[in-house]
């Protein structure tokens, strides 16, 4: 019954990391998730770790995550997701928001 942990590794051409050292977004509410992105020296690679109570949808997770990492040419980046039964649509949306947040240039004094 324990939680399901999925790990994925990627290596894309001309990888891009994020602007901030790290970034966090979201709340692990029912049907939702949190995303933690952290700059890491992975020699250009990207790693994704998903922790979810859901089993039997590993392929779907892989598809959603792969599309996100490859579509955005991400590298030298660790992405961690703590999920609580979010749908693939919500997962993709949160990942996009998290990336935007991670690349946001900070305005002074905030």
């Amino acid at each position: 019954m324990a939680l399901n942990e999925l790990n994925f590794k990627y290596k894309v051409e001309n990888p891009q990391s994020i602007a901030k050292e790290y970034s966090h977004l979201g709340v692990v509410g029912s049907g939702d998730l949190e995303v933690l992105m952290e700059k890491k020296d992975f020699g250009g690679g990207a790693e994704v770790k998903v922790v979810t109570p859901v089993t039997g949808f590993d392929k779907v997770w892989e598809m959603v995550v792969t599309k996100f990492v490859k579509g955005n040419n991400l590298g030298d980046l660790l992405i961690e997701i703590n999920d609580n039964n979010a749908t693939p649509v919500v997962v993709s949306m949160r990942l996009r928001q998290a990336l935007a947040e991670a690349n946001k240039i900070e305005k002074g004094g905030e």
């Binding site: 324990a2 939680l3 709340v27 692990v28 109570p53 703590n82």
Partner: peptide, 11 residues
């Protein structure tokens, strides 16, 4: 304590 119960965790 949550993983053993299959309950989602938050950092």
């Amino acid at each position: 304590h949550l993983p053993v119960l299959g309950e989602a965790i938050g950092y």
